[in-house]
Design a binder for these strands. Structure first.
Lengths: 196, 196
DNA sequence: GCAATTATTGACCGAGCGGTCCACCAAGCC
DNA sequence: GGCTTGGTGGACCGCTCGGTCAATAATTGC
């Protein structure tokens, strides 16, 4: 056999993901990636391929992880309406508002690359369709629990909730204070989720 | 006197703005800017300074222009509620959905640069505060016309409308079809603007 | 312990970047 | 018609980029 790897793939992907998250794709250089991962160029290329492939791996890892958290949260919250409210308020759930300022890696990547990078666009479509489906499922549950009107289209409602949430994420990136952001999140949630 | 300029500053700014709009800041090279403007490096630097300054000029020109259109639309529409609905639906007002896919230059720039570029962050804050104020003014008018509840906070309502609109802009960039996007825009508008 | 295999490291590469500089040119002034 | 002034175009610069490669190190099978 041969020499084993001296690094943990998951750990490296997390470090790389954070770097892309904070600086974006174009503004992140290979030197940055070497610094945050502690690896040399050869190791990075040997293990993940070039910068673009590495980015896609990190992005996929991010969407898989947050998709898992979302599914868990939506299904494990006893009352579906509470889960939906938590979904909308998620961008401001971080106490200091740091998460709000950082935004969402998938959203940032979509803005930066979706028009020019087909792989990123595909990942964006995949992610937002999956998210819409998860939320729609939760909407159906809320309807079954009598908390949402039964005649509303679940998919359409889910899309509107997702748009509202992503709008919040975006407002966070404009430097809007966490207090105003939280208030706006509440206003949005109240409009869609009566009596939560 | 000396040799006069052989180009129209506004025209160059428009061409440059479109380039940044389509490709983003980092992905636009000076060669791109020379190509779309038809100018040499010397002329660009002489007239606008370096790439960053030129970008800020183009961005400011964009925000001023669209801010002007918005003010015009909000104040000249007879019924304020219709104006607010038009505001929310603006991202899908383009027939083919091309505008929806392109997004908003200010929003794209915010996502790409706000965390690392103080000038862009400042411009983002300025723009969104100004927009909020304009929309809030329109909300007050709608309240006066009896179309919106008088007890709603205009600023807070304006922020929620803006968040909804920006969420729509973002969904457009994920490749969501113009039909679904239009439907979602309608759903959002209906929630905030009853009976429009 | 030697061979085979794979990870690691850092020197190295060509290309493209943003930015500078200078020779040239057009227009007004005397 | 020179002279001055400022616009123009392109050659040029140093740098950093993403990416390659060969020498070396670490591990297992025999």
């Amino acid at each position: 056999m041969a020499r084993p790897r001296q690094f943990d793939e998951e750990q490296v992907l997390r470090a790389v993901r954070d770097q892309f998250w904070d600086a974006g794709y174009a503004a992140t250089s290979l030197e940055d990636l070497m610094r945050v991962s502690g690896l040399g160029k050869g190791s990075l290329y040997g293990a993940f391929g070039d910068k673009h492939q590495l980015f896609l791996r990190a992005l996929r890892s991010y969407t898989d992880t947050s998709g898992g958290y979302l599914r868990e949260m939506l299904t494990s919250t006893p009352r579906a309406l509470d889960a939906l409210r938590a979904f909308v308020m998620a961008p401001v759930s971080d106490p200091g508002g740091a998460a709000a300022r950082r935004g969402c890696l998938m959203a940032n990547s979509t803005c930066e690359l979706a028009t020019t990078d087909p792989d990123v666009l595909a990942e964006a479509r995949r992610t937002y369709e999956a998210t819409t489906a998860l939320v729609a499922e939760c909407v159906v549950r809320a309807q079954g629990e009598g908390d949402l009107p039964a005649d509303a289209d679940p998919i359409e409602t889910a899309r509107a909730l997702l748009a509202a949430q992503q709008g919040l994420v975006f407002m966070g990136r404009t430097g809007l204070g966490i207090d105003q952001l939280t208030a706006t999140a509440g206003t949005l949630a109240d409009r869609f989720l009566p009596d939560a």
